[in-house]
Amino acid sequence: MDHNKTHITEYKVLAKILLLLIFCTFLTISITSFNLAAFTVTIALLIAGVKGFLVLSYFMHLKYESLLLRILVGSIFLLFIIIVLITFIDYSFR
């Protein structure tokens, strides 16, 4: 069995990721305080996407997981984006 092959994420790396995540949080707040119309929500969602990516990669260790698992997780998000797109196309052309 290869129990010892697991990658151990160092404390320092985790602390740096936390700082990045907090920075992104304040970035979102300062950006959404300006009214850039439709861009605001896009930028807020993009930053949230970056934060989500950091959590998935480092906190949830996906960066060091098998390719299969990474593809599976990616497909779930892709599936969700497709569902959202299809729903919006449907609503726009009613």
């Binding site: 979102t28 605001t40 929500v41 807020a44 969602l45 930053i47 949230a48 989500g52 959590v55």
Partner: peptide, 16 residues
């Protein structure tokens, strides 16, 4: 739980 909150926070609290 954290991941969901990352999306909930800007969508619920920061709407312009």
């Amino acid at each position: 739980v954290d991941l969901i909150w990352i999306f909930l926070f800007p969508l619920m609290y920061l709407i312009t």
